[in-house]
Amino acid sequence: MKRIFFYALLLALVVIGSAPYVGAEDAPDFKAMLKTVDGLVSFMDTDFSAEYAIVLDKPGESRSVTDAVMFRRDKDEKYLILILEPTSDKGKGYLKIGQSLWLYDPLSRRFTFTSSKERFQNSNARNSDFTRSNFAGDYDIVSGHREALGRFNCWVIDLKANNDGVSFPKTKIWVSDDNLVRKTEDYSLSGQLMRTTAIPTYQKVGNRFLPVTMLIVDNLRGKTINGKLENERTQITITKPSLSTLPDSIFTQAYLEKVSK
């Protein structure tokens, strides 16, 4: 009996003693992780272009589809987006050069400056969603912990903006073990959840990654349909990615005027 008690006690001590090491992992250098995350989805050594299909679903309303083409040069903080569909918006364009973002209206043939925080074509995407990722530069790390997200094991990192240029002052990102952001939650300064974004699948182009599709759920807009709460949501599908070098003249107001309707 004493022997059984002794072995039971020994086993308990072993279990208790090893408990802190079960299921725990050393917290990584989150700043370095963010730099890796940014690096995998930014195109600093090549130009980038692709077609974007932006599908906005408003509960109880008809679906709207916007097709656009994007030309991006991350190293110079430039992009040009041209709207191809719907017909009513065809020819509108966005030109970002450094901190300046211009919206081109083909009806008035005028450029007006706008904000990267604005909604893109009234969808749930922001203009800032089309720039390069810069979590490491724009945000400070608040905390991080390990969490499972479906089949992905992720680090969940709470971030707080360190400048006013970003669209959301607080954000939480789920980073899978391959250093890709799978999910984000964007918050207001008061902690109100404003937007949730899911990127379940990436496509590798060259040695960089970009989403196949990303689903953006607007947590502040929605309706209850048949007793079930539905939020507005936007699905962005990226196709025909290209890393071909683009002429410098692409990123000019004159080029946008030329290719517009």
Binding site: Q203, G206, P241, S242, L246
Partner: peptide, 10 residues
């Protein structure tokens, strides 16, 4: 995740 063959210039 997939590997997408880079397309030509748009």
């Amino acid at each position: 995740d997939t590997v997408t063959k880079e397309g030509g210039s748009l």
